[in-house]
Nucleic acid binder design. Sequence first.
DNA 1: CGTGTTGTTCAGTT
DNA 2: TAACTGAACAACAC
Length: 256
Amino acid sequence: MPELPDVEGERRTFARVASGRTVASVTGDATIVRNTSLQGLGRALKGRRFGKPDRHGKWLLCPAGPNQVLFHFGMTGSLVDGAGAPPHHHDRLVVRFEGGGELRYRAMRKLGGVWLAHDGRARARILGDLGPDAMALSEEELDAMVGARRGGSKAALMDQGFIAGLGNLSCDEVLWRAGISPRRPLSSLSRDDVAGLHRAMLRVLRDSARVGRIPGRPSWLTGHRSPGESCPACGTRLERARVAGRTTYWCPGCQP
DNA sequence: CGTGTTGTTCAGTT
DNA sequence: TAACTGAACAACAC
């Protein structure tokens, strides 16, 4: 699931369930903690109170005193309010709070994980070379970035080092709304194209973030990701191909 | 038993 | 060097 809008949903879950709460214990599957042991994570968090979570791209950044817990959700991860919820086979980490309540990191596949950072340097090392957050990017910034980028539009928008947050679904949705074919070189975009791309990106991300996922509404391209479906705007049969390594849908009519 | 999957990373190639 | 490709990771559904 997790693209930027999904992680916005996780951010709200964390804020509701964990922010302001003091950690009592940390248990779970040791392999989901990527850069320390379960015990190390427990020692760093125990007795600490979680602050307000932040997000950059698909990363969720959760302060606990001087430390930070960094969540990445891979393809199947999510945060769950564990209060009163029955144990689940895919609960990989359980953080219990003083006075009751718990937060769980649940993931079917263990492609994401949990990292501990003691300071800003450690955090930067873990996050790697991320581009600006897609939701915080201004049209002027995008315009300045586009000219120097070689290669196709989809590959660029999917590159977390270029812009952080877009995934396969949101990328297809944004390109469709902006009327840009996924293989079209990004550097070929006119100023108007860039303005349209920026508008489409914010629109898609804001609408999706509000519900915490990319809505597969019938009026969205994302609602038609099965072979043989038609464009919800013009009725043209959608194209489907592997672009930038991922299954891509686009409308040859709306995205020349 | 194949294929495919909303994520990243790494090795190898263009 | 920048960017691309394919494999690997992991756990399912079909």
